[in-house]
Structure formats: structure tokens, C-alpha cells
Amino acid sequence: MDDVTSEFDLVLQAFWLTIQLAALSGVVSLVLGTVLAAMRVGPVAPFRLAATTYVNVVRNTPLLIVFVFVFVAFPNLGLLVGTPFLLKGVVAVSLYTAPFVCEAIRAGINAVPLGQAEAARAIGLTFGQTMGNVVLPQAFRAAVPPLASVLIAMTKNTSIAAVFGLMEATARMRYFTNNSADDTVIFLVFALGYIIIVETLSAGAWGLERRWRVAR
């Protein structure tokens, strides 16, 4: 306990790394996931096949194994050798999260009622107008709640970077724990840190959802 209070800056540093990891991975996996979703709903069959395969394979692989590939196997093949650990962590987390983002976006597109597109066509909108003005805005709004839960899970998943030598929050807790009665307090301090991050995210998502709630 004394360690945690006297070296609280170390705790903050560790959470700062967790936040960096989560923010960077969030941006990268949103981009990758959108590309995957576009490939999965698009007209080009090989892309559709490739994206579907990627999604099904990666979704069923444990994140830890993805980390093993990026941190252990690839350097052994001469790939990603001099890359900073933070960047490798972002690569691993993003590769793993992108399929979940893809599925959330697809669920959003599927949630738009068929009648919306039919009505848009009936009043003579072109394909671009139908998609741009009617379907996609609603799809994006419908995708906010599932995307939020994907991003929250991703933030918690960044803890696996601890296994591969990134000094983020979980690794820092490992460093503080010393098999004494204080361990519970130390755990609660770190748990609280994660809870604050997660609750901030879900409050943000809830705010967006409430602001964009479409009357249906």
C-alpha cells in the first residue's frame, strides 16, 4: 500500500500507457474494421471471401495468440524487429479488434429497416443519395452501442500487452503485488483505474446514443 501511495506517479504513468495503447488501437481498428465491413458488403466476390475468412479466423483466435504472433513469431521471421513495443501492441490489438468492429458496423447496416431504402428509391433518390442521406446515417447511429461495447472490451484487452513486456497498468500491478495483505488494496486501486476508463467510454457512448436517437 505504501508503495502505491508513495510511487503513485508510476501508477499514473502505467495508466497513461494503457490509454495511449487503447486510443491508438481504437483508431486503427475502427479504420481496419470499416474497410473489412465495406469488403464484406461490397460487390467484389474475392474481397468478400477474404474479409469473411479473416473475420471468422481472427474472431476465434485468442488475443494472446495474436500477441504471440506479433511479439514472438514475427520477429523470429525477421518482421517487426526494431519496432517499439507500443507500436507492436497497437498492431496486435488492432488486428484482433478489427473483425469485431466490422461485425458491429454490419449489424448497424442490417438494423436499418428495408422500408427506409424503399421509400428513398420511391421518391427518386439515386444510389449515392439513398446511401449517403438515408441509409448510412441511420446505420452509423444504430452501430454506436455495439461499437461502444467493442471499444470497451478492447480497452480491457490492452491488459494482455503486460504479458509481452509493456509496462502498462496490469504489468504495473504485477510489479506492486508482493503476496501481502496490501495486495487487495493494490488490486482495488488498479481496478478503479480501469473502471474509470471504462465508465468514461460508456458514458460517452450513452451520450452519443441519446443525442442521435432517431425517432422510429
Binding site: K156, N157, T158, S159, I160, A162, V163, A169, T170, M173, R174, T177, D183, F187, F190, A191, Y194, I195, V198, E199
Partner: peptide
């Protein structure tokens, strides 16, 4: 639900 599983296991 909010605490990462790895943190829990490590603890």
C-alpha cells in the same frame, strides 16, 4: 465486468 480478466487473474 469492468475489470480486465488478466488483472483479476494476476491478482
Amino acid at each position: 465486468r469492468a475489470v480486465p480478466l488478466l488483472l483479476l487473474i494476476v491478482f
